[in-house]
Write a protein that binds this DNA or RNA. Structure first.
Lengths: 201, 201
DNA sequence: TCATAAAGTGAAACGGTTACACATTATGAT
DNA sequence: ATCATAATGTGTAACCGTTTCACTTTATGA
């Protein structure tokens, strides 16, 4: 299945050595205190090779894993239980991801703290996260029967992604997330269900 | 009134010379094609002096003006006509700002194009714009009688600011803005007016 | 077996940014 | 008016991330 010649194996090994060395050094001494020359040295490759493997630059060394998160976002929208709104489904997904992160092994906690305390890494992570906006918007549009580039779908996708960074670091993150998605849920059902206006008073 | 000693005048002059030289060169040959050494040269100061005046770095040279925009955001919320919701007031403000930009003098159009076509400047502008989030959120909270750090207010502030970048560059920007703020308006009145639920059907 | 292309190398450079030690000069108090 | 002081500016040299270039090594598949 997976073409695993010696070449690709060595390539993967080199890449892994670089990512490992980088993460270890970053955790030991801080992101800014470690230079790319030193990382290359530690992985026993040249600086040129380092940048061949990570054209995204120094920050990319930290984010080596492929993204299941995007697939999860799309799936949450597409495969949600009947009767559940899209914002609700997204909220549930993000809540689960959060709780899974809280009870991660300490290695992962250190990893998160590294990102949290390093502006460059926070920015990079934010960019990666927001890069799912279009895919998520497309999934929402498809599910709601709206045209692909519909601004409402784009907005909902963006806002849902932003919600994560909005509640990040709060002690009341859980309830804050609920409140934000209550806003989105109200707004979304408002602009999707046509003219189902309230007659009360 | 304004303490205007010779010293401060010279300082302001140097700063202006730097900003002017930078903008002129950027517009002539592109942001990436002009180095800070060259800018300092053109303004007849040392590179060290350049960075003393613009600690924000090369990007800061382009954004020399103080921010009336933040004050405008707060005022839009605070001084809105009776009966108008906060999202509506923000939408009106942003719509006005947009239309004013469209009919700006060509100098300003070039300026905007420069920012638009330069990733580093786009990022910087985004960061500056988003830096008003907390102030705007505070204004919203104050007006709605909610606690300062209320997540709903934070979210509304962030989403309203994000709306600008969401509609940016679209040909249907006007209607897209309406649609996004319709979402926010529905959502916001939903989470602020307690239990005024719809009894219809 | 061999041409090819992928992977890696080493050194040099570039551009933004900062550190350092130093010069100049406006300012305000004596 | 004098003078200590602090703000402003200078020049050089470095640091760091990143790219370029010309070059070597080596796995691959025809």
């Amino acid at each position: 299945m997976t073409e695993t010649g010696r070449r690709e194996r060595k390539k993967a090994a080199t890449r892994q050595a670089l990512a490992d060395a980088a993460l270890r050094l970053f955790l030991e001494r801080g992101y800014d205190a470690v230079g790319v020359r030193e990382i290359a040295e530690a992985a026993d490759v040249s600086v040129t090779t380092l940048f061949k493997h990570f054209p995204g630059g120094k920050e990319a060394l930290v984010f080596d894993q492929g993204d299941d998160r995007e697939a999860a976002l799309v799936a949450a929208v597409r495969d949600r239980p009947a009767g559940q709104s899209i914002p609700q489904a997204l909220r549930d997904l993000l809540r689960d991801e959060r709780s899974r992160q809280v009870r991660g092994d300490p290695r992962f906690a250190d990893f998160l703290r590294l990102i949290d305390t390093t502006p460059a890494l926070r920015e990079y992570a934010r960019r990666m996260w927001l890069s799912h906006q279009d895919t998520l918007a497309a999934a929402i549009a498809a599910d709601a029967g709206l045209p692909g580039g519909d601004p409402g779908c784009q907005a909902l996708a963006r806002f849902a992604l932003d919600a994560v960074t909005l509640v990040h670091g709060r002690d009341d993150a859980e309830t804050a997330l609920d409140r934000i998605f209550a806003l989105l849920d109200n707004g979304w059902t408002g602009i999707t269900t046509e003219a189902e206006s309230c007659q009360g008073t």
